[in-house]
């Protein structure tokens, strides 16, 4: 529920701002100079704000496209990410955003045109294809009815020869994608954890079966789809849980038509982890057998390897190896938002 909308004066007249404000006609609108005045001050509590986040409409002034962190790469060659939004509609307890941002308010950068210009420039700067991931600092599609992000970016990529788009999501908001003819350079990647884990840790997200329904619809329409098992979450029953999850997924989907499948481990920078534990000390995930390695908090190395090996082995029962992408950074990895 969004009650308050902050709007940067500079983008007050932007057509996208106007469309969003029309949608929230009876809400309180507050003008500001820069979104950082609301988003950045110290002394805010993410947990409290997550109960009723405000929406901040802003203009991204620079850094529209950034090099992707190693664990976020989906293909060899050039990998980038871009964030039209900061923070997420969902409330996944493992998400690094809770540790990174002081505020849980949603920041939406409405100047999509500048993102696309930057993407074009990066794509054209070399001959090798470039991948552009969305969903690092937010879920790509969760707020689609408000943001109309896919509605704008999907057709924009239809015009780009050398650029691929990955939308990372747990959402079922695929209507705006289905409005278009399928594009070979756009992949919608859905994140999964086992049902029980999702219920405990991925608050406000659609169930695994609803996500599968959305994937099936995209596949039927000819869209490329990816699966992301990231982060892997350890429980004493993780083998049974992941086995069941893979079975549930591959009973429903044809593995041969999947664009890509990746695994990622739970990993958070130490500072973010400390913030998360302070915010949610009652959370079982943070009381788990975790340890610090090179400034990162992750599962004990033996447990991590056990999970990774087991899941990889199970996945390869269903998948051709060429569509499997393990994402195991030696360092620097984080559980992403989407």
């Amino acid at each position: 529920m969004i009650d308050l909308i902050y709007v940067e004066k500079a983008i007050k007249a932007h057509p996208r701002t106007r469309a969003i404000l029309e949608r929230f006609a009876n809400k309180t609108v507050i003008e500001c100079d820069r979104y950082t005045e609301i988003f950045n001050p110290a002394g805010q509590n993410f947990r409290l704000q997550k109960q009723r986040p405000a929406l901040i409409l802003a203009r991204k002034q620079e850094g529209w496209v950034l090099p992707a962190p190693p664990e976020y790469r989906i293909a060899a060659g050039r990998n980038f990410y871009f964030s039209h939004m900061l923070n997420c509609l969902y409330d996944c307890r493992y998400c690094f955003l809770q540790g990174m941002y002081r505020s849980a308010n949603y920041v939406l950068f409405v100047n999509y045109e500048d993102f696309v210009t930057a993407i074009e420039a990066v794509a054209d700067s070399a001959a090798t294809p470039a991948w552009f991931c969305s969903g690092y600092d937010c879920d790509s599609l969760a707020l689609e009815p408000v943001t109309r992000f896919a509605e704008y970016f999907v057709p924009a990529f239809a015009e780009l020869d050398n650029a691929f788009l990955e939308l990372r999501t747990k959402s079922t908001q695929i209507r705006d994608i289905l409005r278009y003819a399928p594009l070979s350079n756009v992949v919608t990647a859905f994140s999964f954890t086992p049902d029980r884990v999702a219920r405990e840790l991925e608050h406000r997200t659609p169930s695994v079966s609803k996500r599968l329904d959305a994937i099936a619809k995209l596949q039927q329409a000819g869209w490329a789809v990816g699966l992301r098992f990231d982060p892997l979450i350890y429980t004493a029953q993780f083998r049974a849980q992941y086995q069941q999850l893979f079975q549930q997924i591959f009973t429903r989907l044809n593995p041969q038509t999947l664009h890509s499948v990746s695994l990622g481990v739970f990993r958070l920078p130490k500072g973010y982890f400390r913030t998360l534990v302070k915010l949610y000390p009652e959370e079982r995930l943070f009381a788990a057998p975790l340890e610090e390695r090179d400034g990162m908090i992750s599962y004990r190395a033996d447990l991590e390897a056990e999970m990774r090996d087991y899941c990889e082995q199970e996945l390869l029962k269903y998948l051709p190896r060429e569509s499997f992408f393990p994402c195991y950074p030696e360092s620097g990895g984080k559980a992403h938002a989407g």
């Binding site: 009650d3 308050l4 902050y6 309180t28 507050i30 500001c32 100079d33 005045e37 609301i38 001050p41 805010q44 409290l48 704000q49 997550k50 109960q51 009723r52 986040p53 405000a54 505020s103 849980a104 308010n105």
Partner: peptide, 27 residues
């Protein structure tokens, strides 16, 4: 208050309001 402006200092603050509002808000 959703925004507090110190007129002489030119400093603006935005008290976060993550709860059901009991009344209208104002600068």
């Amino acid at each position: 208050a959703h925004q507090v402006v110190d007129a002489s200092m030119g400093v603006t603050s935005y008290p976060p309001l993550p709860f059901e509002l009991p009344c209208v808000t104002e600068r």
